[in-house]
Amino acid sequence: MLESIKEEYISSNKKSWDEAAPRFFGRTALPIYGPFLPKENELKLFGDLSGKKVLEIGCGSGHSLKYMSSQGASELWGIDLSDTQIETARNLLSDCTTKLNLFQGAMEKNPGIPVEYFDIVYSIYAIGWSVDLRMTLRNLYDYLKPGGSFIFSWEHPLHNRLSQNGNQIIINKSYHEEGLQQCEPWDSPAIMNQLKLSTYINELIQAGFQIERVVEDVVIQEEINSDAVWYTHQKAVLIPPAFIIKCTKK
C-alpha cells in the first residue's frame, strides 16, 4: 500500500512539474546553491572539475550541467522527473561538446545509470522532492566511485515552520513534524518530504556516506527582491533559508 501511494505521489509530482517547469528555468543553478547561501566560487566544494564525470539529480533546465561543462567536466549526466525539464535541458546543452546523457525518471529508481562510475553526484535544490529518501540515497551511493563526492542543497527544515505576516515572524508548525506533505507555495498537487536536518544527516550515514561539511551560512546582500514572498530578508536574518551538505562514498 505504501509503495503504491509513493507511485501516485511521483506521478502527481511529474504532472505538476511538467506544467510548472517554465517558472523555474535557469533559477537556482550553480554557482548558486539556493536563496541566501554562499556561492560555489566562495565555498569551492566541488574542487577542480577537470576531467570529472558528474551526475545531477533533478537536473531541471540544465543550467547547472552547463556550469559543469564550463568548469571542464568530461561527462555530463542528469536525471529529472519532468519531460518538460529534460527537453529544455537538451535544447540548452545542444551545442555543448561535452558528452551528455539525460534521463527522464524518478530519482527513487535507476533508469539505466551506471554504478560506481561517477566522480561527483550532486543535486541543487531538488532532493526534498524525493518521496523515498532512503532509496534515493542508496541509488546515489551506488552511482559513485569509491571516494567520490555527493553534494546537495535544499530548503532548510526550519524555513517552512515559520511564516511571515507583515513584520511578524510566526512559528506555525512543529520542527519535529516529518513526512510527505503538500508543498505550501504550490496550488497544484506537489508532494515534498519534510524532514529534520538530523534525519538527512542520519540517512546519509545509514547509506554509507561520510559527512565532510554542512553549510548553513546566510549571505545577506543589499540587492534584496522586495517582491519576494517565500524567501524573505526578514526570515533570513533569523534562520537559514537553505543548507548544503557535502559527503563522500567510503
Rank of each mutant, 00 (worst) to 15 (best):
L137E: 02
E203C: 03
K66F: 01
L204T: 08
G105Y: 04
A126N: 08
L93M: 05
N165V: 09
A21N: 04
L204H: 06
I120P: 01
W186A: 04
P31G: 00
N110P: 01
L158F: 12
Y141K: 06
H63W: 10
L30V: 05
A89H: 01
Q168P: 07
I79V: 07
G51Y: 05
W154Y: 14
W129M: 13
P157S: 12
Q71S: 07
K250D: 09
K173A: 07
E203T: 12
S163W: 11
S198D: 11
M68F: 15
Y122W: 08
K145R: 15
E75H: 15
I171M: 13
R138L: 00
L76T: 02
F118K: 01
W186D: 04
K246R: 15
Q221M: 09
Y117I: 01
R134G: 00
G105A: 09
Y9P: 05
T232N: 03
Y175H: 10
L81F: 01
I32D: 14
I211Q: 11
S12F: 00
S94W: 07
L43N: 07
W77D: 04
Y122C: 06
L93R: 06
I191S: 03
P111D: 00
G26N: 10
W129N: 11
K145S: 08
G72I: 02
N13S: 02
V121S: 14
E19H: 13
S4F: 09
G78R: 07
Y231G: 01
R213P: 01
V131H: 02
C96F: 01
C247P: 03
Q182G: 00
Q71K: 15
L197F: 07
N165P: 02
Q181L: 11
L30Q: 10
P38D: 13
R27H: 06
V115A: 14
V115F: 07
K145Q: 15
P38V: 12
S153W: 04
F209G: 06
K66S: 08
S61N: 02
L158D: 07
K173N: 07
R134I: 11
G112I: 05
L133K: 02
T88I: 04
D48M: 09
G128F: 15
I151F: 06
Q164N: 04
